[in-house]
């Protein structure tokens, strides 16, 4: 088994699963019905994408590993998602900004993964990119609406930028397994993705009347299993049923 590919798959699957779970927390609590449905639709896409990735990872691992054991029976330190996606929903501005900063990274990443040297991963990317395109359009539009909206929505977007900006540096910082994946043609160059991300964020922020913060210190650790305190609480809820009643089905 290629350990670097397996770890990279967990990283991709965990990003999708954790953000999907965060969005699912909003189900029934969205600001208006249509946007509640939009966020739960996106949650469904992301959880679906994580299933495809975990199914592939489980086939690679073999033995008793399944998509469910990967999602429900690993502890926080085994999760490799970036810190950005585990951050709490906060107000609608923070939920939207987290989504946009992530979608603007995910879109160029998956676009490139369609040409990955790993054919299974390329197929997953080809399937996922159509959905990710909807996500980026939706979150971009809301960043503009809120940033260029009322004084209140503009201020809230600025607060969200303050809260979340320091989690964006990690997206483009190579982990060990990403370096190995890059060397074997599985993963494209993160610098190219960073360039596209920077241009996208710059464009949308300009249209929204929002300022990009000065280059600042950034958190990292998520990719290697060192997480903020929020992930443990998220997993406690997500994994409760399988931990308390192992093997339970509905």
């Amino acid at each position: 088994m290629k350990d670097h590919l397996y770890n990279f798959l967990l990283h991709l699957g965990d990003n999708a699963l954790v953000l999907g779970h965060r969005l699912s927390e909003i189900c029934g609590h969205g600001p208006i019905l249509e946007q509640d449905m939009a966020m739960t639709n996106i949650a469904l896409d992301l959880v679906g994408q994580s299933r495809n990735i975990f199914q592939y990872a489980a086939r690679m691992k073999g033995g008793d590993t399944t998509e469910d054991t990967l999602a429900y029976l690993r502890d926080a330190t085994a999760f490799k998602n970036v810190l950005l996606v585990e951050q709490k929903n906060g107000d609608f501005a923070k939920t939207i900004l987290r989504q946009f900063l992530y979608d603007a990274y995910n879109y160029p990443l998956y676009k490139r993964l369609m040409n990955s040297s790993d054919k299974d991963l390329a197929a997953i990317a080809e399937k996922s990119i159509k959905e990710i395109t909807y996500h980026l359009k939706w979150s971009s539009e809301w960043v503009i609406r809120l940033g260029d909206g009322t004084e209140e929505s503009h201020n809230r977007m600025n607060n969200a930028i303050q809260d979340l900006w320091s989690y964006t540096g990690e997206l483009f910082k190579y982990s060990d397994y990403e370096i190995s994946c890059h060397e074997s043609g599985i993963l494209p160059d993160l610098n190219g993705i960073a360039e596209e991300w920077n241009a996208e964020v710059k464009n949308i922020f300009a249209e929204a009347g929002l300022e990009i913060p000065e280059k600042a210190w950034s958190h990292d650790g998520g990719k290697r299993g060192v997480h903020s305190e929020h992930l443990g609480f998220l997993l406690a809820e997500m994994q409760f049923l399988q931990r308390a009643y192992p093997g339970q089905e509905w």
């Binding site: 939009a38 996106i42 959905e131 909807y134 359009k137």
Partner: peptide, 8 residues
């Protein structure tokens, strides 16, 4: 009204 509806 919204690009996201009752199903995906």
């Amino acid at each position: 009204v919204s690009q996201f509806g009752s199903t995906a």
